[in-house]
């Protein structure tokens, strides 16, 4: 065994996908993001639950929720939740297309993956902009 290895000419080409030359496939990243956003949304339901409960409880409880929603951390959390929800929904539609047996071709795969991330970022921007304007713009 060692004998054979010793006699082999030194290999100069990269012999396996190496960290420096490996391009992370977009489809792989989108697969991971679907799971991560699903995980985030799971705990995000606590926020939705708090929102409904605060509205049902009365002005004081709602003021507390609005104080959080208006804080820097609250704004970041809500923006992250919004993007997660939109991204996961688009990713979910992609899964549903796959469930019909379509969308597995080499180009379709890439196209769907790109549409998911570009679509989610664009839609989140639109929703955030509408939200910003609805809150009265910069005050």
């Amino acid at each position: 065994m060692a004998d054979t290895l010793d006699r082999r000419a030194p290999v100069t080409r990269p012999i396996s996908p190496h960290l420096q030359i490996y391009r992370l496939p977009l489809t792989l990243v989108m697969s991971g993001l679907h799971r991560i956003t699903g995980f985030v949304l799971y705990f995000g339901m606590l926020l939705v639950c708090w929102w409904f409960l605060a509205a049902a409880q009365g002005p004081n409880a709602y003021a507390k929720f609005q104080w959080f929603a208006g804080s820097i951390i609250g704004q970041i959390v809500i923006l992250g939740y919004t993007w997660s929800l939109i991204h996961h929904t688009l990713g979910g539609i992609r899964h549903l297309i796959w469930d019909t047996g379509r969308g597995f071709g080499p180009q379709e795969r890439e196209w769907l993956a790109a549409a998911t991330i570009i679509g989610s970022l664009a839609l989140t921007f639109v929703v955030a902009l509408i939200g910003y304007l609805a809150m009265g713009g910069s005050r």
Binding site: A55, A56, P59, A61, A63, I130, G131, A134, G136
Partner: peptide, 13 residues
């Protein structure tokens, strides 16, 4: 959700 942004408790409820 967008529709409820910035409204007070009475309106949201």
């Amino acid at each position: 959700g967008i529709f409820l942004l910035g409204r007070n408790q009475a309106a949201a409820a």
